[in-house]
């Protein structure tokens, strides 16, 4: 455990010095600042105003940016380190592969989750200072969702990094994975599949298996309990899960995907050439 934490700590420090981290933090911090600057907390759409409105917008933007950002930065730095000879040297030191792999994943998780979370916390603090009502339930749940989504795509990123032998291949694969998930998020595509007589259950199952869709549906569920925005598939979701059940599912399922992907990546890492 000592070596796992040491690896995580070292990875955090390495990331804090990297340019990608500055850009990453600036983007999420910048989003919150821009949402305030554009007076989003004052606007009223579908009855939502104040911090709630800001958080809903922030979570939607995060869903668009966070997965691809985590995927690309993870595969570039992990596969890039291997290509550059960092693994050759650091893995010649007496450390178990488990401590190395999971330490890297934990360290990387801290640096991808914290800026996103702190931007949300910053919004809450700003709202409190300005006397706005803080929707604590939504804040806690959205924090959990961001945690879950970050872990999910980090696990997928680590799996891709382990499988791809070069940073370029890893980056291409990460982009394809993200594109596939986006594609099956698209309600138009799902609509076309239903029109082509593919069983609606199968289509909804695909949507439910897509962590991005799970995240998106869960983000909606807090302010649209009947999932009116989602259309007919809402019946299936609410009938099978119920509101609370789906909220729990949407937290646990992406974490499960991330952990499973990480675990498969780790097993492959154990059996593969390291540098």
């Amino acid at each position: 455990m000592k070596h796992l934490l040491l690896t995580a700590y070292t990875d955090i420090l390495e990331s804090l010095r990297a340019r990608w981290f500055l850009i990453y933090s600036a983007i999420f911090g910048g989003i919150v600042v821009l949402l305030f600057l554009f007076g989003l907390t004052e606007s009223r759409i579908m009855g939502f105003t104040g911090i709630t409105r800001l958080m809903i917008t922030y979570i939607q933007l995060s869903m668009a940016i966070l997965p691809i950002f985590i995927l690309i930065t993870t595969v570039r730095s992990v596969a890039g380190d291997r290509e550059a000879g960092v693994f050759e040297y650091l893995l010649s030191l007496p450390i178990t592969l488990g401590s190395w792999f999971w330490g890297k994943m934990v360290g990387r998780f801290v640096v991808v989750f914290l800026p996103v979370f702190l931007a949300l916390v910053g919004a809450i603090i700003w709202g409190m200072v300005n006397g706005a009502d803080v929707p604590w339930k939504i804040f806690l749940y959205y924090s959990g969702l961001l945690f879950s989504l970050s872990w999910c795509f980090l696990g997928i990123g680590m799996l891709i990094s382990t499988m791809a032998r070069s940073a370029d291949v890893a980056q291409g694969a990460a982009f394809i994975v993200w594109l596939a998930l986006i594609l099956f998020l698209d309600l138009i595509l799902l609509g076309v599949m239903i029109r082509e007589s593919i069983s609606p259950d199968a289509v909804v199952a695909i949507a439910l298996a897509n962590p991005l869709q799970v995240f998106r549906t869960a983000a909606m569920l807090l302010f649209d309990a009947q999932l009116v925005l989602l259309g007919p598939s809402a019946y299936l979701i609410l009938d099978n899960f119920g509101e609370t059940g789906y909220l729990i599912w949407s937290l646990l399922y992406p974490v499960g995907i991330g952990t499973l992907s990480g675990w498969i990546g780790y097993r492959l890492f154990l059996r593969s050439d390291l540098p």
């Binding site: 070596h3 420090l13 000879g85 960092v86 040297y89 030191l93 450390i95």
Partner: peptide, 30 residues
Amino acid sequence: VLKHIGFVPQLPPPLRMPVGQLINFAASLC
């Protein structure tokens, strides 16, 4: 096995970490 082996690679790795941190990291692992 590796705690018995001192290794010097041909090409130094492009580590961004400061020298002090690298020494402490290696010493701690070893």
